[in-house]
Design a protein around this nucleic acid. Structure first.
Lengths: 156, 156
DNA sequence: CTTATATAGGACTATTTTAGTACTATATAA
DNA sequence: TTATATAGTACTAAAATAGTCCTATATAAG
C-alpha cells in the first residue's frame, strides 16, 4: 500500500477544483456538487485545509473558501500534512522516543534519507501542476549522493 | 503521516541484519535475539519476505533464512510491496474501478506521476545501502519534466 | 434588529486496517 | 525416530480512518 488517506485524496480533488478559479469564493455546498463528495466530508476537509492556512475562509451569508496563496505556492506535501499530520515514513521520524529500539537502531539514519527523498518528491508538485494537464508535472529523479557530505544534492 | 506499517519497518531491520552476513542461515529465533522483535512477529515477517522471494528458506533442523539475492539487488520498494502489497498513493493506483469518481477524475494522471516519483525514490535504496553507514545512501532529487514527452527523465 | 446563510469546533459511531498470537502441517538433519 | 525449523492459515485485539451530527459564531441583506 503506502497510500494517502481518502480525505487527503478528496483534499487534492477539492483544491484542484478551487485552483481553477482561485479568486472566487467557493461554498462547501457548491464544492459538493462539482466534486461528488458528500457534504459533511467536504466540510471536514475544508476546515482542515483552512486551519492549515491553505485556504482562507469567509463566514456568513455569501461566505466560502478561497486559496490562501497562488496555486503554484501550495504543494502536495503541505496538503498531506494538513490532513494527516507530519509526513514520516517511520514512527521515529515524527514522534521520537516512542520506539523501544530507537537508541540502538542502525537504520534510522537511512530511513531519514528515504523520508527526505519522498518528501522532496511530494514537495515538487503544486496545485498549479494538479490543475494542469499531465505533461507539465514535476517528477522525482534519483541520483547517488556525494560521499563527502551528508547533504541532499538537489538540482533544478 | 504517510508511513510504512510497523511490519515493514521490522522487515527492513531484519533484512539489514541478515544483509550483514548474507551467506549464513538465520533462524527466526536468532533474529529475535539480535533485533529485539518478538518471535511470532519475526516469524510472520520472514514468511512474507520468503513468499515474495526476497528471502530463501530452509526447513527442518539447522534451517533458517538467507537472502535470495545480493544485498544491492533488493530495494526498499520491493520490501514494502512484499509486506503491504503494491505501492499506490491513491486507491485507483492499485485497484481500478473501486472509486466512483474515477471515470471523471481530473487528477488521476497527476497522482500517477507523483506515485512514480515516490516509487523511484524508494527503488533507489537497496539493502546494501541500509546496511552501510548513512553517507553512502542514494537520495531523491526533483526536477521539472520536459513538456514534450510524458516520460520520466531519469539521471544517474 | 432580525433572519437566512455559511463556517468553526468538537464529539461521536462505525468501519476498516493493522498488529499480534496461536495452531496444525510439513520438511529435514542427526 | 526425534528434535528442530519453516509453511500456511485462522483468529483476536487494538488502533486508525471515515463519516456524520450538533451547537456556536460570524456576516450579508432586508
Amino acid at each position: 500500500m503506502l497510500r494517502v488517506s481518502k480525505l487527503t485524496d478528496y483534499a487534492t480533488v477539492i483544491l484542484t477544483h478551487i485552483a481553477h478559479q482561485p479568486d472566487e469564493l467557493h461554498a462547501a455546498s457548491d464544492i459538493t456538487q462539482s466534486t461528488g463528495v458528500a457534504l459533511p466530508t467536504v466540510s471536514k476537509v475544508l476546515k482542515l485545509l483552512s486551519k492549515a492556512n491553505i485556504l482562507i475562509s469567509h463566514r456568513g451569508a455569501k461566505g466560502g473558501y478561497q486559496l490562501a496563496k497562488k496555486p503554484n505556492e501550495t504543494n502536495v506535501a503541505e496538503v498531506i500534512t494538513a490532513i494527516e499530520g507530519p509526513i514520516g515514513m517511520t514512527e521515529c521520524m515524527t514522534s521520537k522516543g516512542t520506539c523501544e529500539q530507537e537508541p540502538s537502531c542502525e537504520i534510522k539514519g537511512n530511513w531519514s534519507l528515504i523520508n527526505r527523498a519522498v518528501y522532496t518528491a511530494l514537495e515538487a508538485v503544486t496545485l498549479a501542476d494538479m490543475a494542469a494537464p499531465v505533461r507539465q508535472q514535476a517528477v522525482s529523479v534519483v541520483m547517488p549522493m556525494t560521499k563527502e557530505t551528508n547533504e541532499l544534492k538537489v538540482e533544478n
